[in-house]
C-alpha cells in the first residue's frame, strides 16, 4: 500500500491535535495531580500519596464507594429484566412492533429528562405516584422516594434501570434472532414446557449476549452521575452520593476546590472501572 503520495500526517493532524489536547493531556494531568496538593489558588505542591492516605481514612469516601458498589445491583437486574422483555416481544403477533418501538423510547431521551420526569412523579407531596397510592388507600402518608435516607438511592437506581431496559432488550433480541426456531419446535414436539425451553435452549445460547449486557451495564453503572445530580444531588445526607458525584463535589462543590484530592478519587474510579472490565473479561474467558 502506498502512503507516498500524501503524508498520513495531514489526515491525522486535525483529530490528533484535538485528541492530544482534550484526551491525552488531561489524562496525564489527572494522573499527575492525584499526587499533588492543588487548589487552583496556590501552586501545586507534590504530596506523594497524601491524597490517597487521606481518602482512605475519610468516611465520606467509603460512603461513596459503598454507594457505587451498591449501584452495581442495577446490572444483574437490568440483564434479567431486559432478557425477559426481549423474550416477551420476540414473537409474531399483531402490533408487536408497536411495543418494541415504545419500549425503546426511554433509551432515546436524555438521562436528565428521564430524571426530571421521575422526579415529577416521585416527589413527596405533589408527586403523582404518592397521590395515586394514597387515593387507592395503599399508603396513609406519602412515601419519601427521593428524600428518605434508605430509599433515595434505590429510586435513582430505578431510573437507571428504567432507561436501560429498552437498550438491552434490543441486544437480546439480536441474540434471540440467531437461535434457530426449529429448536423450539422440536422441544414443543417433545412436550417441553415454555420454561423448560427457556432454560435449556434460550439461556445457554444467549450466554455471550448476557455477558455483553453485564459488561456494558456495569461499566455504565460505576460512572453514574446525571440521574444522581438531577434527582437527589447525592442526598439526603450523602446517602445516594456515588464516586463520580463525590469527585465532582470535591473539585467543584468545596471551597477552595480540592483538585488533587478529586483526581485521586478519579484514579480510584478508573481502578474500579478497570477491575470491572477485567472481571468481566475473565468471566467471559472462563465461559469459553
Amino acid at each position: 500500500m502506498s502512503g507516498r503520495r500524501i503524508n498520513p500526517l495531514w489526515f491525522l493532524l486535525p483529530a490528533g491535535a484535538l485528541f492530544a489536547l482534550f484526551a491525552l493531556y488531561p489524562l496525564y494531568g489527572a494522573i499527575k495531580l492525584a499526587f499533588f496538593d492543588y487548589n487552583v489558588f496556590s501552586p501545586a505542591k507534590f504530596a506523594a500519596a497524601a491524597n490517597f492516605r487521606e481518602m482512605f481514612s475519610t468516611p465520606n469516601f467509603w460512603n461513596a464507594a459503598k454507594n457505587s458498589f451498591l449501584y452495581l445491583v442495577v446490572t444483574p437486574a437490568l440483564a434479567a429484566a431486559s432478557l425477559l422483555v426481549a423474550v416477551l416481544v420476540n414473537r409474531k403477533m399483531r402490533g408487536i412492533n408497536f411495543f418494541r418501538t415504545a419500549y425503546f423510547l426511554p433509551v432515546v431521551i436524555p438521562m436528565v429528562i428521564a430524571g426530571i420526569a421521575w422526579k415529577l412523579i416521585l416527589s413527596d407531596d405533589t408527586g403523582v405516584l404518592n397521590q395515586l397510592l394514597m387515593s387507592a388507600h395503599l399508603i396513609k402518608k406519602p412515601v419519601y422516594w427521593l428524600t428518605g435516607a434508605d430509599l433515595a438511592i434505590f429510586s435513582v437506581m430505578f431510573v437507571t434501570f428504567w432507561k436501560g431496559i429498552g437498550y438491552y432488550m434490543v441486544m437480546f433480541l439480536t441474540g434471540l434472532q440467531t437461535i434457530p426456531s426449529n429448536l423450539y419446535e422440536s422441544a414443543q414436539v417433545d412436550g417441553a414446557s415454555d420454561l423448560y425451553a427457556f432454560r435449556r435452549i434460550t439461556l445457554p445460547l444467549l450466554k455471550p449476549y448476557v455477558l455483553l449486557v453485564l459488561i456494558l451495564s456495569s461499566s455504565a453503572a460505576i460512572k453514574v452521575f446525571d440521574e444522581v445530580y438531577i434527582m437527589t444531588s447525592g442526598g439526603p445526607l450523602r446517602k445516594s452520593e456515588t464516586l463520580i458525584y463525590y469527585m465532582y463535589t470535591n473539585a467543584l462543590g468545596d471551597f477552595p476546590p480540592r483538585i488533587g484530592f478529586a483526581c485521586a478519587v478519579g484514579l480510584v474510579i478508573f481502578a474500579a472501572a478497570a477491575g470491572i472490565a477485567l472481571a468481566n473479561r475473565l468471566i467471559m474467558k472462563g465461559e469459553k
Binding site: 494531568g29 489527572a30 495531580l33 460512572k223 483526581c263 484514579l267 478508573f270 472501572a273 478497570a274
Partner: peptide
C-alpha cells in the same frame, strides 16, 4: 478504557 470523567479537572 479510561472514563473521561476522571480527567475532567485537567
Amino acid at each position: 478504557f479510561v472514563p473521561w470523567e476522571m480527567t475532567f479537572v485537567p
